[in-house]
Design a protein around this nucleic acid. Structure first.
Lengths: 161, 161
DNA sequence: CCCATATATGTAGGTGCCTACATATATGGG
DNA sequence: CCCATATATGTAGGCACCTACATATATGGG
């Protein structure tokens, strides 16, 4: 049997990751073709800040559905590149508000057409794959309803009786 | 707009990765519940060796559709755990043949029911999501036909005229 | 006011993949 | 046989996420 076609849960995870790597790599090529050094994880943060203005680490994490640690790491990288700046939140001393720097706003403006192209390309892929985004929605909903862990554990429990 | 629903190519990559992380994490829980310390990347290698007998790094990489470097890294980890052994390939001094050790064969036998449960759980998810595996096939085929890079570049080129 | 608990974000280390580069061996033509 | 090129696999560093743990600040009840 062709491994990549196997339906074992563990193989699904690996397959999704490989696809992700592939798409990331191809996106990186597109940025490079425009002479832009860009980290994929920057997209989510920059996009949110451009849309919403200043946000905290936790708000970004929530919007992007990743951990605050991931945001914090991306934040460091973005600051190092001069794309964002931070300031304390006057309303809560624990929080730090991140916002686009001048250079960050310029980069977002410059990348507008490229991001629009990404969106269009994604719609093409969505159509060619036959409804990719909704499929991913459904997969997430299925996992929300009942995790892989619970499913596997229940099946193994049955197997024992 | 809800970021996770966005169709930008970069966001698709991030979304696939997060799903992959989620599934990996849930799979790890299932192994742990069986008292097994297991790395997700072991599955592919162990499964192939169990099915096919001794294989080279390159053969495994080809079968698993990952780079030889990834195989090499997993190999080191598996060896350290005593699950596989290696020997030179008599037919080609550049190659090393990897095979299951005694402990590796035992682990594969022990994990047989769990892997069967993963397969069943994956079929459930496939059904609930409405044809996940075929969708992934179609997405890969679409990218094979025309990469995200080419799509985006062409769209940007159009935009310039 | 004090204190137990909650919340925000950082540090440290890990995971599983990748690309670039390096080195050893194999191959085939001259 | 020699040599240019191809092939197998390793080393090094990076990417984008994760969990566990740590520390500072906020909150609300007594």
């Amino acid at each position: 049997m062709d491994y990549v076609k196997a339906k074992a849960g563990a193989a699904i995870g690996a397959r999704l990751r490989r696809l992700s790597e592939r798409i990331d790599g191809e996106a990186t090529q597109a940025y490079a073709a425009q002479g832009v050094v860009f980290e994929q994880r920057w997209f989510g943060v920059l996009n949110q800040l451009a849309l919403n203005g200043p946000m905290s680490v936790g708000e970004l994490a929530q919007a992007l559905r990743i951990t605050h640690v991931s945001v914090s790491q991306a934040r460091l990288s973005l600051e190092k590149a001069g794309m964002i700046q931070q300031e304390p939140d006057a309303a809560d001393a624990r929080r730090r508000l991140l916002s686009l720097s001048g250079a960050g706003r310029e980069l977002v403006t410059r990348l507008g057409p490229l991001w629009a192209a990404f969106e269009q390309a994604s719609m093409e892929l969505d159509r060619e794959a036959g409804g990719l985004v909704e499929m991913l929605d459904r997969l997430e909903a299925a996992l929300d309803r009942r995790s892989l862990f619970h499913r596997v554990t229940a099946i193994c429990g049955e197997g024992r009786s």
